[in-house]
Design a protein around this nucleic acid. Structure first.
Lengths: 184, 184
DNA sequence: TGGTACATGTAACATGTTACATGATTAG
DNA sequence: CTAATCATGTAACATGTTACATGTACCA
């Protein structure tokens, strides 16, 4: 009955707790690994949401383990709040891409510097794609669940699109020079 | 000298003010049109940043016009703060994609409902792509500046990748049924 | 004269970031 | 015994969202 309007971050924590009791630390690590690429969160947020959800009766704290480790466990209320969230229409995505801002105001940026920004970002997207592809190769056809594969595939498609876009940028913007300096 | 560490939102407002004095309303509209697709902001934020920047001497308020219209104008400090920001390395992008979260926890979502979520989002991405393509067609080869074309191209590549990903989702997830209801 | 688009702003709250403070356990 | 990693938490602040309150000018 209780009308807990969860935010997506809190809800995700409840989702992970279905796998068994976990501490804030575990949850942070899990979340960053599993959903971190399309749903960023920080440790501070995790602890805050956990505290709040204990207050709301969605989870309960178990006995402290070694290293002050504090595990949390789902309650029935937590389970049903999670289910309700999971079955609610998700909103549109938001992207915040600072590099695009710099490009948008590119006429105010030193040309070589802008090209340098682009190079740096291109490289990090190359790395990210390689990582996703390694993950995809590591978890072959039917090993992982289809949902995890779907989100991974999204990552791959996204990174490929970004790289294609980088490569199609006009020379005017992506000067054919080397990066500004041999910056490590 | 004054070490104004601008956030990207405030900096963007300064960027737009290079085109001439504008009111909060104008800036909101401009920003949403020009950078809104990769840098979301709200009216409230705009007014808050404007107030703060007046306090910091980066802009000055001009004489009120009709309808209490309050225009703002760049100061030299504002211009140089903007330049400094524009030439600073942009951070990585962040994506928050609620639909991917629902897919990630897809085993907890009713299958038809999940398929419905996907349909709805697919459609809105189709619309967005069409809009970008219309814009690209409207501003032919060399009419617009290359920077604006680059950000538009990003949008197009992104939407195409998302649509390709939707279409490649396994039947298991994207059930071959019709949308839940004939929702307009 | 009444509705719509223009225009500004505040208040309250939710979320996200960064830095700090503290301590336990393990591996070398 | 000491450095790295595990682990929890708070405080302060920045940013983002939503709702409310107010009023102007235009157009039909």
């Amino acid at each position: 009955m209780t009308d807990h309007r969860l935010n997506a971050t809190a809800a995700s924590l409840l989702g992970f707790l279905h796998r068994g009791p976990m501490s804030g630390w575990d949850l942070t690590v899990q979340a960053q690994q599993v959903i971190g690429d399309f749903w960023s969160l920080t440790r501070s947020q995790v602890y805050r949401e956990l505290t709040r959800m204990v207050g709301d009766g969605l989870i309960v704290a178990g006995a402290r383990g070694s290293r002050e480790r504090q595990p949390y466990e789902l309650t029935d209320a937590g389970r049903s709040a999670f289910l309700a969230w999971a079955n609610t229409e998700p909103g549109p995505e938001t992207i915040r891409f600072p590099l695009l801002l710099k490009i948008s105001f590119g006429s105010f940026v030193d040309a070589e510097r802008l090209a340098g920004f682009i190079d740096i970002h291109r490289e990090s997207h190359e790395r990210q794609l390689a990582e996703y592809e390694a993950q995809a190769a590591g978890a072959p056809p039917e090993s992982s669940d289809p949902y995890a594969r779907a989100t991974l595939t999204f990552g791959i498609e996204y990174e490929r699109a970004v790289l294609a876009w980088f490569d199609a940028l006009p020379i005017e913007i992506r000067t054919p020079r080397m990066p500004p300096d041999s910056v490590g």
